[in-house]
């Protein structure tokens, strides 16, 4: 009797838990989980959206090897990430260190640095394109007339400068977000550590390298993973600022996948590209987690 009552109580408890979970879980399962599994299958198929789906085996992946645009996009994605990740980390950490000092107007300054992160990408991309307009833009006017540089960079309109331009705008837009994460990390460092170090005769630089940086390694670890993932997913900024051009100078993986799927209607091939993207992101994340023990210290 008692035992039976217990099991029905347990059963009841489980039902209650599931009832809390269900509204979200149904939506999540149908619109996220199933498509994720389906993406895996689709990369092995031929499909143009109109005709029958046919099984293609590894054909899509073999095609990738000889696809020049894919190769360029892959290299561009690495180029973009290699530029953006370290520079964003340095800028946001530097900002956080400055803002962590006892200064007036801290909240206002913090808001100024953070706002570009929440600003619409389309608006931001178009205003930067105008400011950096190669012939009429104010930046090049100043470079020519004030600094007497005869041939200023043609920014997003030139093959060589397009990617650096995108990287600069991306750092400008996103560093405020990572600055907040670093600020939270800095506030978690106990003051006593610095006081003890000062008593022992440590200077500011020593404090920074022996206390601040090691204590911030969990934040840096989190920031580097988040940044890497978001760099490999880059789409909007490039799509609006350069459209992947000039030529294929800023064509990254997601732009390529988008064009293949929604312009050429080659859904299977597009899924294969996305899957490669996912595998790269996964590998980098795994490597980062493997290396975590070597440099991240949790106190």
């Amino acid at each position: 009797m008692n035992k039976k009552g217990n099991t029905s109580l347990l059963y009841n408890k489980r039902l209650v838990a599931y009832s809390f979970l269900l509204p979200n879980f149904i939506g999540f399962a149908v619109f996220t989980l199933i498509p994720v599994v389906f993406a895996l299958a689709l990369s092995l198929m031929n499909w143009d959206g109109a005709n029958e789906i046919t099984f293609a085996g590894l054909k899509n992946f073999r095609e990738l090897i000889s696809d020049e645009t894919f190769r360029i996009s892959l290299l561009n994605t690495f180029y973009y990430s290699a530029g953006t990740v370290p520079l964003t980390i340095i800028c946001s950490l530097g900002l956080a260190l400055l803002l962590n000092q006892p200064i007036k107007g801290r909240n206002a300054i913090r808001a100024v640095y953070f706002f570009p992160y929440v600003a619409s990408l389309v608006a931001v991309a178009v205003v930067w394109n105008m400011i950096l307009n190669p012939t009429m833009g104010p930046v090049n006017e100043i470079l020519q007339k004030v600094f007497h540089i005869a041939k200023p960079p043609r920014w997003s309109a030139s093959v060589d400068w397009a990617m650096p331009t995108v990287i600069i705008v991306s750092i400008w837009k996103n560093m405020g977000y990572y600055m907040i994460i670093y600020l939270a990390g800095l506030q978690g460092i106990p003051r006593e550590l610095y006081e003890a170090a000062k008593v022992d005769g440590a200077g500011n630089l020593q404090c920074f390298f022996r206390i601040t940086l090691p204590m911030l390694t969990p934040s840096t670890f989190f920031v580097s993973i988040m940044l890497t993932i978001s760099c490999f997913k880059i789409f909007d900024l490039i799509f609006v600022m350069t459209g992947g051009g000039p030529g294929r100078a800023t064509n990254v993986l997601v732009v390529h996948a988008y064009n293949v799927a929604f312009k050429n209607f080659n859904f299977g091939y597009s899924s294969a590209i996305s899957l490669v993207l996912f595998i790269i992101v996964l590998c980098i994340t795994i490597i980062q987690f493997r290396m975590e023990k070597k440099w991240v210290s949790y106190f």
Partner: peptide
């Protein structure tokens, strides 16, 4: 796990669905 998967990976299946 799905937070870490780029949305672009499953955007095509979602679109087809």
């Amino acid at each position: 796990g799905t937070i870490a998967i780029p949305w672009q990976v499953y955007m095509v299946p979602q679109y087809i669905m």
